[in-house]
Amino acid sequence: MNEATSFLQLVVTAMVPFILAAQGTMIAGRAGVFNVAQEGLMMLGASVGFLVSLKMGGNLVGLLVAALVGAAFGWFLGWVTTRFRLDQFVIGLALFFAATGIASLLYKVVIGVTLKPPLIDTLPDLEIPLLSSIPVVGTVLFTQDVMVYFAFLVSGLLYWMLYRTNLGLKLRSVGENPKAADSLGVSVARTRIWCSTAGGALMALAGAYLPMTYTGTYTEGIVAGRGWLAIALAFFGGWRPQYILAGSAFFAGMEVLALRVQVGGVDIPHQFISMLPYAATLLVMMFALRWASVPAFLGRNYDRESRH
């Protein structure tokens, strides 16, 4: 396998947390719920995913439990912002801190302080028959672990659901004009709660993937800002699943490149490359206004009896 192929293979692996966390942000956001707890939910997902895998012996169980915990957090955000109309940003930040704290706490309670951290198995590569034998493409796209396939599948399903189904038509209307949706019998609260729940699950999955593919264990710095980047990626991708998928290739590419530069001793500061996704997002927000369309009611609560 040559240098370029292995680089691309790494990039595709690195895309997974970006795809999942940003699609989670997107699906909640398209219904109007602006979740800003990604970083925390990814930490929690990483911690829970790791601990469950370790204690119950199985990555899939770990992923599943992490997703459920993330879903619970997403549900809570959706519920308090619709039922009590609390400020989405404030609750989101509170959830970020809570999730971050619980993540570390769980690890300390279960594992304690050890010299040699326990390890779990990383996810094995699954070669897709036939497809994986295509040169380069087969290695890059079809010799990957199960979560890579899952992330691409989720992106495709979200695209289909949003733009090709009646459910998607209703969902998007809740984020664009909840009053219009409400007046036609679409339940704003229910839609928002479900989307926020699904979003939380995807974010926690994004986090749970990290110990299962990179480190084999949980560390405090494991998420390393990927959650915040996922918010940027949602904007970068114009809150559309297909562009988020494409954008995650760029974000992941920069991540792997920064790592290579660090190891390879090239004379570019790796911080400069790590900064590029943020800079690109800014540029998109500034110059591609039409592309970077943001749901009109993103982050805004809806009150049916409000007189204005």
Partner: peptide, 15 residues
């Protein structure tokens, strides 16, 4: 009460 980014048909069938 219309979704500006939707077509006439999409607005009518919504819900």
């Amino acid at each position: 009460l219309q979704v500006d980014t939707y077509t006439v048909t999409e607005n009518v069938v919504l819900g």
